[in-house]
Protein backbone atom coordinates (compact mmCIF):
# COMPACT_ATOMS: atom_id res chain seq x y z
CA UNK A 1 0.00 0.00 0.00
CA UNK A 2 2.81 2.33 1.01
CA UNK A 3 4.63 1.79 -2.28
CA UNK A 4 1.45 2.65 -4.21
CA UNK A 5 1.14 5.92 -2.33
CA UNK A 6 4.82 6.76 -2.99
CA UNK A 7 4.39 5.95 -6.68
CA UNK A 8 1.37 8.24 -6.83
CA UNK A 9 3.29 11.04 -5.14
CA UNK A 10 6.20 10.66 -7.55
CA UNK A 11 3.83 10.71 -10.54
CA UNK A 12 2.09 13.79 -9.17
CA UNK A 13 5.39 15.57 -8.57
CA UNK A 14 6.69 14.84 -12.06
CA UNK A 15 3.41 16.05 -13.58
CA UNK A 16 3.81 19.29 -11.65
CA UNK A 17 7.41 19.67 -12.75
CA UNK A 18 6.54 19.22 -16.40
CA UNK A 19 3.73 21.76 -16.08
CA UNK A 20 6.11 24.26 -14.44
CA UNK A 21 8.78 23.84 -17.08
CA UNK A 22 6.11 24.12 -19.79
CA UNK A 23 4.90 27.35 -18.26
CA UNK A 24 8.37 28.83 -18.10
CA UNK A 25 8.89 28.11 -21.79
CA UNK A 26 5.55 29.70 -22.65
CA UNK A 27 6.35 32.96 -20.86
CA UNK A 28 10.06 33.48 -21.44
CA UNK A 29 10.21 37.27 -21.42
CA UNK A 30 12.56 38.87 -18.93
CA UNK A 31 11.18 41.80 -16.92
CA UNK A 32 10.79 44.79 -19.16
CA UNK A 33 13.15 47.75 -18.91
CA UNK A 34 15.88 45.78 -17.18
CA UNK A 35 18.16 46.17 -20.13
CA UNK A 36 16.08 48.37 -22.42
CA UNK A 37 12.74 48.02 -24.12
CA UNK A 38 14.15 47.14 -27.56
CA UNK A 39 15.87 44.00 -26.37
CA UNK A 40 12.78 42.92 -24.45
CA UNK A 41 10.67 43.19 -27.60
CA UNK A 42 13.27 41.23 -29.62
CA UNK A 43 13.06 38.55 -27.03
CA UNK A 44 9.30 38.26 -27.32
CA UNK A 45 9.43 38.00 -31.08
CA UNK A 46 12.15 35.37 -30.94
CA UNK A 47 11.54 32.97 -28.02
CA UNK A 48 14.58 30.86 -28.91
CA UNK A 49 16.87 33.67 -27.90
CA UNK A 50 15.11 33.85 -24.55
CA UNK A 51 15.69 30.18 -23.83
CA UNK A 52 19.38 30.87 -24.24
CA UNK A 53 19.03 34.08 -22.25
CA UNK A 54 21.10 35.77 -24.92
CA UNK A 55 19.38 39.04 -24.12
CA UNK A 56 21.29 39.11 -20.85
CA UNK A 57 24.71 38.77 -22.44
CA UNK A 58 25.09 42.45 -23.30
CA UNK A 59 25.87 43.82 -19.88
CA UNK A 60 25.99 43.01 -16.17
CA UNK A 61 22.97 43.80 -14.07
CA UNK A 62 23.80 46.35 -11.41
CA UNK A 63 22.21 47.39 -8.14
CA UNK A 64 23.87 50.82 -8.50
CA UNK A 65 21.43 53.69 -9.01
CA UNK A 66 23.86 55.99 -10.84
CA UNK A 67 25.69 55.52 -14.14
CA UNK A 68 29.08 53.83 -13.95
CA UNK A 69 30.72 57.11 -14.95
CA UNK A 70 29.14 58.85 -11.94
CA UNK A 71 30.06 56.28 -9.32
CA UNK A 72 32.59 58.70 -7.84
CA UNK A 73 29.70 60.37 -5.96
CA UNK A 74 30.30 57.55 -3.48
CA UNK A 75 34.03 58.18 -3.11
CA UNK A 76 33.61 59.99 0.21
CA UNK A 77 31.74 57.03 1.62
CA UNK A 78 34.49 54.64 0.43
CA UNK A 79 37.18 56.84 2.00
CA UNK A 80 35.12 56.99 5.17
CA UNK A 81 34.91 53.18 5.34
CA UNK A 82 38.66 52.92 4.78
CA UNK A 83 39.22 55.44 7.54
CA UNK A 84 37.56 52.99 9.93
CA UNK A 85 40.07 50.31 8.93
CA UNK A 86 42.93 52.78 9.42
CA UNK A 87 41.61 53.97 12.78
CA UNK A 88 41.07 50.38 13.83
CA UNK A 89 44.80 49.71 13.47
CA UNK A 90 45.65 53.05 15.08
CA UNK A 91 43.62 52.06 18.15
CA UNK A 92 45.17 48.60 17.94
CA UNK A 93 48.67 49.99 18.55
CA UNK A 94 47.46 52.62 20.97
CA UNK A 95 45.81 49.92 23.10
CA UNK A 96 48.92 47.72 23.01
CA UNK A 97 50.98 50.33 24.86
CA UNK A 98 48.79 49.96 27.92
CA UNK A 99 49.41 46.22 28.09
CA UNK A 100 53.16 46.66 28.67
CA UNK A 101 54.65 46.04 32.11
CA UNK A 102 55.70 49.68 32.44
CA UNK A 103 52.19 51.05 31.83
CA UNK A 104 50.14 48.07 33.08
CA UNK A 105 46.73 49.67 32.57
CA UNK A 106 44.48 46.81 31.53
CA UNK A 107 41.37 49.02 31.71
CA UNK A 108 42.70 51.53 29.19
CA UNK A 109 43.90 48.68 26.99
CA UNK A 110 40.43 47.13 27.07
CA UNK A 111 38.76 50.44 26.23
CA UNK A 112 41.02 51.08 23.23
CA UNK A 113 40.88 47.48 22.01
CA UNK A 114 37.10 47.74 22.09
CA UNK A 115 37.27 50.83 19.89
CA UNK A 116 39.65 49.00 17.54
CA UNK A 117 37.34 45.98 17.19
CA UNK A 118 34.33 48.17 16.71
CA UNK A 119 36.05 50.24 13.98
CA UNK A 120 37.22 47.07 12.20
CA UNK A 121 33.77 45.47 12.22
CA UNK A 122 32.11 48.69 11.10
CA UNK A 123 34.64 49.08 8.25
CA UNK A 124 33.83 45.57 7.01
CA UNK A 125 30.12 46.23 7.35
CA UNK A 126 30.46 49.39 5.25
CA UNK A 127 32.30 47.42 2.55
CA UNK A 128 29.39 44.97 2.53
CA UNK A 129 26.98 47.89 2.33
CA UNK A 130 28.87 49.22 -0.71
CA UNK A 131 28.70 45.80 -2.35
CA UNK A 132 24.97 45.72 -1.72
CA UNK A 133 24.60 49.03 -3.54
CA UNK A 134 26.84 48.15 -6.48
CA UNK A 135 29.69 50.42 -5.41
CA UNK A 136 33.11 48.82 -6.00
CA UNK A 137 35.48 49.11 -3.06
CA UNK A 138 38.98 50.58 -3.45
CA UNK A 139 41.63 51.45 -0.88
CA UNK A 140 41.42 55.21 -1.28
CA UNK A 141 42.01 57.53 1.68
CA UNK A 142 41.51 61.16 2.56
CA UNK A 143 44.76 63.14 2.68
CA UNK A 144 44.51 63.67 6.44
CA UNK A 145 44.36 59.90 7.00
CA UNK A 146 47.23 58.88 4.72
CA UNK A 147 49.91 59.86 7.22
CA UNK A 148 48.52 58.03 10.26
CA UNK A 149 51.23 56.06 12.02
CA UNK A 150 51.21 53.73 15.01
CA UNK A 151 51.54 56.03 17.99
CA UNK A 152 54.62 56.80 20.02
CA UNK A 153 54.57 56.74 23.80
CA UNK A 154 51.36 58.40 25.02
CA UNK A 155 49.85 58.90 28.43
CA UNK A 156 46.49 57.60 29.64
CA UNK A 157 44.77 60.98 29.36
CA UNK A 158 46.32 61.72 25.97
CA UNK A 159 45.12 58.34 24.67
CA UNK A 160 41.55 58.90 25.84
CA UNK A 161 41.55 62.48 24.53
CA UNK A 162 42.93 61.26 21.20
CA UNK A 163 40.23 58.60 20.98
CA UNK A 164 37.57 61.22 21.76
CA UNK A 165 39.03 63.42 19.04
CA UNK A 166 39.04 60.60 16.47
CA UNK A 167 35.49 59.53 17.28
CA UNK A 168 34.20 63.08 17.17
CA UNK A 169 35.85 63.65 13.79
CA UNK A 170 34.25 60.43 12.52
CA UNK A 171 30.90 61.72 13.73
CA UNK A 172 31.42 65.06 11.97
CA UNK A 173 32.42 63.28 8.75
CA UNK A 174 29.36 61.02 9.00
CA UNK A 175 27.25 64.17 9.24
CA UNK A 176 28.91 65.60 6.13
CA UNK A 177 28.45 62.41 4.11
CA UNK A 178 24.87 62.11 5.30
CA UNK A 179 24.23 65.67 4.10
CA UNK A 180 25.82 64.86 0.74
CA UNK A 181 23.52 61.88 0.21
CA UNK A 182 20.34 63.28 1.70
CA UNK A 183 19.78 66.62 0.00
CA UNK A 184 18.56 67.16 -3.53
CA UNK A 185 15.79 68.93 -5.35
CA UNK A 186 12.88 66.99 -6.81
CA UNK A 187 14.34 67.19 -10.30
CA UNK A 188 17.98 66.58 -9.40
CA UNK A 189 19.75 63.70 -11.13
CA UNK A 190 20.80 60.69 -9.01
CA UNK A 191 24.35 61.46 -10.12
CA UNK A 192 24.26 64.41 -7.68
CA UNK A 193 24.55 61.83 -4.93
CA UNK A 194 21.10 61.76 -3.33
CA UNK A 195 20.68 58.32 -1.83
CA UNK A 196 18.01 57.82 0.82
CA UNK A 197 19.07 54.27 1.59
CA UNK A 198 22.68 55.19 2.24
CA UNK A 199 21.62 58.17 4.37
CA UNK A 200 19.43 55.86 6.37
CA UNK A 201 22.33 53.44 6.87
CA UNK A 202 24.60 56.27 8.04
CA UNK A 203 21.99 57.63 10.43
CA UNK A 204 20.87 54.33 11.90
CA UNK A 205 23.97 52.15 11.87
CA UNK A 206 26.74 54.71 12.33
CA UNK A 207 25.44 57.87 13.97
CA UNK A 208 23.48 56.27 16.79
CA UNK A 209 26.47 54.28 18.02
CA UNK A 210 28.95 57.08 17.35
CA UNK A 211 26.99 59.65 19.38
CA UNK A 212 27.15 57.37 22.43
CA UNK A 213 30.87 56.67 21.96
CA UNK A 214 31.74 60.36 21.64
CA UNK A 215 29.75 61.16 24.77
CA UNK A 216 31.43 58.39 26.76
CA UNK A 217 34.93 59.38 25.68
CA UNK A 218 34.47 63.11 26.21
CA UNK A 219 33.09 62.29 29.66
CA UNK A 220 36.17 60.20 30.47
CA UNK A 221 38.48 62.94 29.18
CA UNK A 222 36.86 65.62 31.30
CA UNK A 223 36.81 63.36 34.34
CA UNK A 224 40.55 62.67 34.01
CA UNK A 225 41.24 66.35 33.45
CA UNK A 226 39.39 67.32 36.64
CA UNK A 227 41.14 64.60 38.64
CA UNK A 228 44.47 65.96 37.49
CA UNK A 229 43.67 69.63 37.96
CA UNK A 230 42.09 69.28 41.41
CA UNK A 231 45.02 67.43 42.91
CA UNK A 232 48.01 66.66 40.66
CA UNK A 233 49.85 64.90 43.48
CA UNK A 234 47.08 62.33 43.79
CA UNK A 235 46.81 61.87 40.01
CA UNK A 236 48.79 58.58 39.85
CA UNK A 237 46.38 57.14 42.42
CA UNK A 238 43.42 58.61 40.50
CA UNK A 239 44.67 56.90 37.35
CA UNK A 240 44.89 53.60 39.19
CA UNK A 241 41.27 53.94 40.33
CA UNK A 242 40.10 55.09 36.91
CA UNK A 243 41.84 52.14 35.26
CA UNK A 244 40.04 49.79 37.63
CA UNK A 245 36.73 51.33 36.67
CA UNK A 246 37.49 50.68 32.99
CA UNK A 247 38.50 47.04 33.53
Amino acid sequence: MKSIIILCLVAFASANLSTDSGKSLETPCPPENLFGEVEAQDCCSNPDSCVEDSVFFHTDATSRIVDASKVDVYDEFIKYANEYLTRSYEYFFLAAQFGTYSKDRAGFEKLLNGLSDSAWNRGIDMIKQMAKRGIPHRYILNKDIEGIVSSANVTEMAAVAKAADIEKNLLIKANDIHRHHSHASLTASPSCGYDASLSHYIAEEIMEEKVDTVRTLTGYTNQLKRLFKQDPKLYPLSLFMFNQQLE
Binding site: T86, Y89, E90, F93, E146, G147, I148, V149, S150, N153
Partner: peptide
Protein backbone atom coordinates in the same frame (compact mmCIF):
# COMPACT_ATOMS: atom_id res chain seq x y z
CA UNK B 1 56.39 49.35 16.07
CA UNK B 2 56.15 53.01 17.07
CA UNK B 3 56.41 54.19 13.50
CA UNK B 4 54.33 51.91 11.30
CA UNK B 5 52.61 53.99 8.65
CA UNK B 6 49.11 52.54 8.76
CA UNK B 7 47.81 54.79 5.98
CA UNK B 8 50.62 53.53 3.77
Amino acid sequence: ISNINIGQ
